[in-house]
Design a binder for these strands. Structure first.
Lengths: 191, 191
DNA sequence: TGTATAATGTGATCTACGTCACCTAATGAT
DNA sequence: ATCATTAGGTGACGTAGATCACATTATACA
């Protein structure tokens, strides 16, 4: 599938755009590729775009004072990644994003996003729904953190995103689940 | 402040509406009051509206198989509450909402919301930004759950929403923080 | 193709927090 | 005013998971 098709199918799950409208929207996206380990956004950076992932994997993460990393999101195909706080409130980045597995992305500038939103109502509707889905997803994760122990959080994640198992190193999965890498290792080697 | 003024000021932090536009939007909101303990939404219900809180306090929560309650959100003045998964995906409610402290709310039906969104672009923009802010807020909470221990989560919450201290019983604060009521009690009685 | 570096496994502790049990203090209905 | 119910406090104890230390295995790059 071409980048255009991947984006098109993704968007059309929520709204309908004519070919013309879609091509116009698509014209604002710039393809950018990243190599494993490359950094997209660092804490303190200015942020002016968001990334639509075509393949590979990015991670959004935070490193605390003790150098402990917490992962907010893995972004794989058809996921969006950015520091949305920085992006929407014109603040400096408060999280980092880097590349976990070689990735191709489409980059959308903030001002282009607002421009197209104004010009094509459906695009704004799409973004409203996208935010809503993101919100609902995070609520589920909070519930999972409150309600489940490390093992069932792990099993839940592997069930929902089995591709993560081979795509990202285990200590990053631990950093996503909120568990030490040692504990995670014991979890799936014991039972 | 009148309900109208509370909503108006809230909305105008994000977008500008003319008096006429605002009054039109406002006309879709129905005032509903709730008494402490009253239930707004229960798991399994159909959900067709969201609530804008004028005063008092609602809670959105989930009860697991062991009858343990987890609180997703306290909604106080100018907060919105609903089961957004049910509301946006036409599913049955998967969370409960009830009234923690006598509350006045403004209720907006789902189809009215979509209708006004279509008619007034700015309203859709407002809702897009509202979702974004919600998303950012939940990300912060996830980070707090991953990074901080019970005591600092408690202190963080009390610092951000000091009014909660007198407004809601401690065991509900515990259910929000993801800590047992006994541990929470020990936290602020020891140090 | 060898060597440095990153990823993973595993045992031995340690500890924050949960659970259970029981008590006291508010609150609210009759 | 009385009694039932809900909220909150506190001790004793159990446990999931953190931390530390070190061994082993992959991976990358020179």
């Amino acid at each position: 599938m071409t980048p255009r098709e991947i984006l098109r199918q993704h968007i059309h799950k929520t709204i309908q755009l004519s070919d013309q409208q879609f091509d116009y929207f698509f014209s604002f996206f710039k393809p950018i590729s990243f190599k494993k380990g490359q950094q997209l956004i660092n804490v303190g950076d200015d942020v002016d775009c968001e990334y639509f992932v075509l393949n590979g994997c990015l991670k959004t993460f935070f490193v605390n004072d003790d150098q402990k990393m917490h992962i907010l999101q893995f972004a794989m195909q058809t996921w969006w990644a950015s520091d949305y706080n920085a992006l929407y409130n014109n603040e400096k980045a408060s999280v980092n994003i880097d590349c976990v597995a070689d990735a191709e992305t489409l980059c959308l500038q903030s001002d282009d996003r607002e421009k197209v939103c104004k010009e094509i109502r459906e695009v704004e509707t799409f973004l409203r729904w996208r935010s809503n889905k993101g919100y609902i997803g995070l609520q589920k994760r909070i519930l999972s953190l409150l309600n489940n122990d490390a093992r069932s959080r792990y099993e839940e994640l592997m069930h929902q995103y089995p591709e993560l198992y081979n795509l990202v190193p285990k200590h990053l999965i631990a950093a996503y689940l909120g568990v030490s890498r040692e504990t995670l290792s014991r979890l799936y080697n014991s039972k």
